[in-house]
Design a protein around this nucleic acid. Structure first.
Lengths: 275, 275
DNA sequence: CTAATAGTGTCTATTAGACAGTATGTT
DNA sequence: AACATACTGTCTAATAGACACTATTAG
């Protein structure tokens, strides 16, 4: 083996293809909250957590649904690729994105070895005005916890998908989310697993961070905000407790929202913490 | 473009090299707790959080220190590769490992495009008896929070490394750990960043999971356990509060530990939660 | 007036923080 | 006896949960 005198000299000789190389994709769980009007002028609209899915038009997994994503270019960081996909898919920039998990099973893509780094993005759906890419559709996410598995139902209004996953309990000290897919006919690749993991992530994180504010417009009522917490956490919250916690994170604007058959509510905005 | 009638037919024609491919490595932060005897027969030994580093003997970054790691083979999952590296490095199997983050900057490796999925492993150092691989060494990890940056000092007893990082505050609603390296002369690649991220991860996770028990032997005293919490969290805890919290996670054994110049203490073991 | 949400006051229960005190080994 | 840790009791402060009450609008 040749010995080198400097790093520069070593690099000149280096052959990147001495090992067989692989491909990397970025996949994005784009979450938002959608409202469904209720036929009662007094009542608030019902809120759902929604995820954006794309129908595959080519092999592999032709006609199945999958997460928006794409290959990471050789001269592109994972972050750049993720932003590019987000822009393509939603026409939005400066969106909140965080990395979720990197899935690296050998057979997760039948074409070849593909590693997937998955992400969670949160957006205010109102910002998208007919700018959705072609095969993309919003699906309401309805998790149902059964006795020993989790069923997730995805409903676009026209089409209903569903799958079942189970949390791996390899180690009771571990809180890493690992899901095993028990049943899945609708989602391509290992995306059922990714959706389950992402759901768990935002459910945990909404309690100890301020990510919820990415899901609402600039100005919002505390009722709306509370609904978002409720829909993500999957349980009802008590008003006084919610307001106590949220109070220090928001500031009242001069605006109010009227129009419902009830007392109008003040509009608030997110108040950034000082450091 | 040719159209295919079935997925099998499509796959037969697929060329994986139509896009330039890249390499993936797994890097592991192997943490343990080491004890340093104090020259006072009454006192408990002082505890330190330690991380295992390897001195690079080849280019690139020759003679710098880095995390144990290696390339993920084309027929190997990330998890398998990680276990293989752990076994090589420590001769241990069935160790606690969790995925930390995937770093994918374009220039993080000067040789070629390499993506790195980093991991955190926690071990009871006593299990390793002279089985450490050749160039590996334990370093005490001493974080020092300065006014607007974090300094991390790594001390093997013979060699002292240090670097400075700063938390990125790109978005106050985000709690994703992103560190920028301000100063680093001792660590290869972006491993300074990885260490800072991993430290933050276990600091957070020790509070809401039971990962601490991976750092102690089967049987341990509550004093030892408390020291581990203290050294990871970087702050002292009050005994009664600590025992209140931990009480439901442990069970007393019939053994006691004597020998210190003070009251002997009961030995406990981890009690798994029922589901 | 009524149904519905907006918003507040307050009591209680639970949890966290603090401190003081007792217990028991080794030298 | 003295020191250092082991371990517990209890008071207090802070936080979370629960419920009841008032306010205000469109129809």
């Amino acid at each position: 083996m040749k010995t080198y005198k400097s790093e520069a000299e070593f690099l000149k000789d280096y052959d990147p293809n001495q090992f067989e190389r692989l491909s990397l994709t970025t996949d994005i769980l784009i979450f938002s909250v959608s409202s469904e009007e209720v036929n009662n002028y007094r009542k608030l609209s019902e809120k759902f957590l929604s995820v954006l899915l794309v129908k595959r038009k080519d092999y592999p997994f032709k006609d199945k649904w999958c997460l928006p994503g794409g290959f990471v270019g050789i001269k592109e960081s994972i972050e750049e690729a993720t932003k590019r996909v987000l822009k393509n898919e939603t026409n939005l920039e400066n969106i909140y994105v965080e990395q979720l998990y990197t899935f690296g099973e050998v057979d997760r893509d039948p074409r070849m070895r593909v590693i997937s780094t998955s992400h969670v993005a949160l957006i205010d759906k109102n910002l998208i005005k007919g700018n959705l890419s072609n095969n993309a559709k919003w699906f309401h996410v309805v998790p149902k916890q059964h006795k020993d598995y989790l069923e997730i139902i995805l409903d676009s209004g026209e089409e209903v998908l569903s799958f079942k996953v189970q949390k791996k309990i390899s180690d009771s000290m571990n809180s890493d989310y690992r899901y095993e897919v028990l049943e899945n006919n609708d989602l391509a690749f290992d995306h059922a697993k990714v959706i389950a993991s992402g759901l768990e992530r935002i459910k945990n994180k909404i309690e100890y961070t301020d990510i919820a504010f990415h899901l609402v417009p600039e100005e919002f009522t505390l009722g709306e905000l509370q609904q978002i917490y409720e829909v993500v956490l999957g349980k009802e919250l008590l008003d006084p407790a919610f307001r106590r916690i949220i109070k220090e994170k928001v500031e009242k604007t001069k605006h109010v929202q009227t129009g419902g058959g009830h007392r109008p509510s003040a509009l608030f905005r997110y108040k950034k913490k000082e450091l």
